[in-house]
Design a protein around this nucleic acid. Structure first.
Lengths: 317, 317
DNA sequence: CTGAAAGCGCTTACAG
DNA sequence: CTGAAAGCGCTTACAG
């Protein structure tokens, strides 16, 4: 029973008899042997996937993780997460550190990087992005919900509910492709409904104070909207809070729609209409794709899931 | 300029002249050299800390991460996160995989493991726990808020606000030391107020349906409480939701207190009184302690921060 | 089918 | 102060 034999059993490689395999397995169990990922990484794989998320606050990312974990079930792979907004290190920094740590593949969520820098990463490691639209990318796979359609659904729903002065509270900061897609969907929806003249896009960072400021500005301004389509559920909940404080009634005075359909939407005190982008499915699919790439696939894949509007009281006028 | 020299510069080790150091640095920059963590891990450190959290849904963990990232600023260390509740692998599984991946130290959040199994981990790697009370542990450090006092503060506050039939909605599942501490604090508070006869502890898992069921049972039962102290803010928000659906007014008919003082507490539609356990500080301190241990400290440290009650409308009767 | 040997990119004594 | 050499625990040709 040689070192080589153990290695082969470990990787389910061919060239070991059933007898030897059983013997090795028994010894591994008896000794509680665990292979060191670092040593394996020196020559082969580490069986570790790197997942980079922009922040931990949005419960939507927990949905994605559920899908990732489901896909990893019964595989040898483990996932390690890193946060791209950590004060000191930027997105590329976190990704580089994943590469230094020999992750076999990388899943990047909500990236704001350019095609070029994503290609640079993809040269080194199999890469799949979630929440980054680039249908003509060739070196990495993308997994998305159709953000433009999501925004369109939101506007159509609000129009059908009788709202007409519909604003969008978008995200301020690094421009991203999903931002562009959703704003485009909003514009198209407004124009389609003959409301092109009242298109009104405000924006705020994710910082609480900022969102409150932007919400107050919208709700106290001269052309006060009667409905607001918000970037995420969390932002929508803040808008509900501000509206409540200003003495405005939701949905009577102002209708609110969020994005992601997180668990908070269901609470009676929120009852928030939202766009569901099937986070769990996105995570599952991204994980499958990255493992396929690790196993040799080179043809690009772009996976898009249709969004779904879940109507609740916040728009039931 | 030898391989050894590069290694020394990398680790800021002694025994290199300023001239050589500068030369090495220049070359490193020019070539864009990045050391491979796996290779470093074979002989020395990986400069990676492993952080294990029970789930991604509780926004409180994001506060902890903020502290961790602050502590890591200007150090060479990176943090990798793993989720202990991932369907397939259990808490020990995730920790083992962190050890296989040569993490230099491990921070374990909300562990439900026994002293023995934590000691087993601590034998292999520097270990610090957050949210696990074991003041006489000797092989690993602990970082906590004083959960017993937190619960006590909650009960005292509710009593002062005029509530008397105060129930606790606790967590069902693996018993943990923080669970024991909080329940103890609740009991002590009740007895202290002369309400020992109406002690009432219900419990539910974190699953939404479960919490709703438990909340309904409490609020529709024969000895309906006039106030409920909840395990986390999220659970408290669910209780507010159920109460609202049952036509009960918060805080008039029932007062609610949460735990963690997460951002959601501030929303006008929630305005939830909660116990702040300074998550950011806990994360910061745990990170410092684990790095100290990596650098050789062996004397145990147990850090405890006092909790703070933040009163809001949900208890202002 | 089986195992001895080289090598992955570092760190660590050790000799110069 | 500097660098040649051994060795960390694996995987991968390669010879037996």
């Amino acid at each position: 029973m040689s070192v080589a034999a153990v290695s082969k059993v470990l990787r389910d490689a061919y060239g070991v008899s059933d007898a030897l395999r059983a013997k090795v397995r028994a010894s591994m169990d008896k000794l509680g042997y665990r292979p060191l990922a670092s040593a394996r990484g020196m020559r082969g794989q580490t069986y570790t996937l790197g997942l980079v998320l922009p922040d931990l606050r949005n419960p939507f990312f927990a949905d994605i993780m559920t899908g990732v974990n489901n896909a990893l079930e019964r595989t040898q792979y483990q996932v390690m997460m890193g946060i791209s907004s950590s004060s000191s290190k930027l997105e590329t920094g976190v990704v580089e550190s994943m590469i230094d740590r020999q992750m076999d593949g990388i899943i990047l969520i909500g990236s704001t990087e350019s095609r070029e820098s994503l290609n640079t990463i993809a040269e080194k490691k199999p890469l799949v992005t979630i929440g980054h639209h680039d249908p003509s990318a060739e070196d990495f796979d993308t997994v998305n919900n159709n953000d433009q359609q999501g925004a369109l659904l939101a506007v159509r729903h609000m129009v059908a509910a009788g709202y007409s002065k519909i604003a969008m509270l978008s995200l301020q900061g690094e421009p991203s492709s999903i931002l562009a897609e959703r704003e485009m969907g909003y514009r198209r929806g407004m124009i389609e409904a003959g409301l092109g003249g009242t298109i009104n896009i405000a924006s705020a960072t994710q910082v609480m104070r900022d969102v409150q400021f932007a919400a107050r500005r919208l709700l106290q301004g001269p052309r006060r909207p009667d409905a607001i389509f918000c970037w995420t559920d969390f932002i929508a909940l803040e808008v509900i809070s501000v509206a409540t404080e200003l003495g405005l009634r939701v949905p009577e005075d102002v209708g609110i729609v969020g994005y992601d359909n997180t668990m908070y939407c269901d609470f009676a005190q929120n009852s928030l209409t939202s766009i569901d982008q099937s986070g769990e499915l996105l995570g599952l699919q991204a994980t499958r794709l990255v493992i396929e790439r690790i196993n040799g696939r080179t043809a690009v894949e772009h996976f898009v899931v249709p969004p779904r509007l879940v109507a609740r009281r916040s728009t039931s006028r």
